[in-house]
């Protein structure tokens, strides 16, 4: 009976020892992996840092301007290219004009910047409600105008500005 107890204890000791070494080796390998990952992180960070400097260098306004001149030819926005939403007339519901004729109320838009109905001045509300803009009223009943009869304003590329005018 004594032999069996001893054997049990020895077995437990052996198991504990085996477990301990297993954990130990696991910890060592995890430590190695952590050190490797830390080194990699720092290396990556250093590379990101260099790339940030390079990005800033490549984004020198002078260089961007030269690239623009060579490839895309963008120009600074001219004041006449701006307009507010409130300055655009509402589309009339019914029209009394020949198809293909010039839509009344669009001359100003193309000839020149349509002056804002109420310029966006401080103290005033630039985003005034649309119904404040008097909608043109056309008396006689007529067929709805064909979509292609409405002269399209010339489009200009780029930006979120409203293309209501051509650059001078």
């Amino acid at each position: 009976m004594i032999g069996r107890t001893t054997f049990l204890w020895l077995l437990l000791a052996a198991l504990a020892g085996y477990g301990l070494f297993q954990v130990k080796y696991q910890v060592v390998s995890l430590e190695e992996e952590l050190a490797r990952l830390n080194a990699a992180t720092l290396r990556e960070q250093n590379q990101i840092h260099v790339l940030e400097a390079e990005w800033s260098y490549l984004n020198q306004p002078q260089r961007l301007e030269e690239l623009n001149e060579r490839f895309v030819h963008l120009k600074p926005i001219n004041p006449v290219q701006f307009a507010s939403i409130a300055s655009i007339p509402m589309r009339p519901e019914r029209l009394d004009i020949e198809p293909g004729a010039r839509l009344p109320g669009t001359e100003g838009m193309i000839a020149r910047m349509a002056p804002p109905r109420r310029p966006a001045l401080p103290g005033t509300n630039p985003g005034q409600p649309r119904d404040a803009a008097p909608a043109p009223v056309y008396s006689a009943a007529a067929a709805p105008i064909a979509p292609n009869a409405i002269p399209k304003p010339p489009t200009i590329s780029g930006g979120s500005i409203l293309p209501v005018s051509v650059p001078r």
């Binding site: 600074p76 004041p79 006449v80 701006f82 310029p119």
Partner: peptide, 15 residues
């Protein structure tokens, strides 16, 4: 335009 100043019509009566 960079500073977000929108142009106004200098000839507008209230200006």
């Amino acid at each position: 335009p960079i500073l977000g100043v929108s142009p106004v019509d200098d000839q507008a009566a209230d200006v």
